[in-house]
Simulated scan of single mutants.
Amino acid sequence: LALVMAGRMNLNGSAPTGKVTLTTADSAPADQALKAETILMENATYTRELDDDGTAGQWQRAGLDSAGTAIADYGAYAQLLLDLGPKAQKGSEEVDGAPAYRLSGKLTQDQLRTVDRRLYDRMRSAGLEEFACDAWVNESGRVVRFEQWMKVSGASAHNVVTLKNFSAPVPVSAPE
């Protein structure tokens, strides 16, 4: 099952803010299909489902601790990979036609404790000790691609994140 998140995010504040849509791949079974719109604020997340015809459901507010959409700090992940030393430094590659430096390695549950508390808690409850990930950092020091591989309860997951079109912060307000 593939889930695609697309939208505009402000990642440099005290908490990520922005507006995104979440959509399952066309190959998802009808009973698992999802299309939702999410607004992330510094203090809450608002989500509503969207029907195929564009009809929108009611906004549901969730506090940050219970928010279904969590945005990781990919810069912090890149720093964890750098901390692994020279073995994690794979060299320059192109990402979307621009040079980026690739970092690669395995991160442990303990390393995530202060970087990604949500994933740390999930790993603990699933008994997952480590996972592999790669981060590509552009010449400006921004992570432009992130990939993660995990195996939980015999099921494999591969997450791919692409960050691009960096520009001025986008204004975000709570829905009415």
Results as ranks from 00 to 15, higher is better:
129 E>C: 02
34 L>K: 13
42 E>K: 14
56 A>Y: 06
171 P>W: 03
65 D>F: 08
39 I>W: 05
149 W>C: 00
119 L>N: 01
26 D>S: 07
78 A>C: 11
90 K>T: 02
81 L>V: 01
72 A>G: 12
18 G>N: 07
45 T>S: 15
166 F>Y: 15
90 K>H: 02
105 G>T: 07
157 A>S: 09
129 E>W: 07
153 S>M: 14
133 C>K: 07
143 V>I: 11
138 N>M: 08
84 L>C: 03
136 W>H: 04
41 M>L: 15
33 A>E: 13
32 Q>T: 06
80 L>V: 02
156 S>E: 11
163 L>S: 08
54 G>T: 06
175 P>N: 05
50 L>C: 04
22 L>Y: 12
38 T>H: 07
32 Q>L: 11
154 G>N: 05
47 T>N: 03
135 A>H: 03
68 G>D: 09
167 S>A: 15
109 Q>C: 05
99 P>S: 10
20 V>H: 01
57 G>I: 06
41 M>D: 00
152 V>H: 03
15 A>I: 11
93 E>V: 09
174 A>F: 12
103 L>Y: 01
150 M>Q: 13
53 D>Y: 02
110 D>N: 12
133 C>D: 01
55 T>P: 10
170 V>Q: 14
12 N>R: 14
112 L>D: 01
159 N>W: 02
26 D>P: 03
55 T>V: 06
84 L>I: 07
81 L>S: 01
41 M>H: 06
136 W>I: 03
79 Q>T: 14
5 M>Y: 15
161 V>S: 14
109 Q>A: 11
94 E>K: 14
142 R>E: 07
166 F>A: 10
49 E>M: 08
150 M>T: 11
54 G>D: 06
118 R>Y: 10
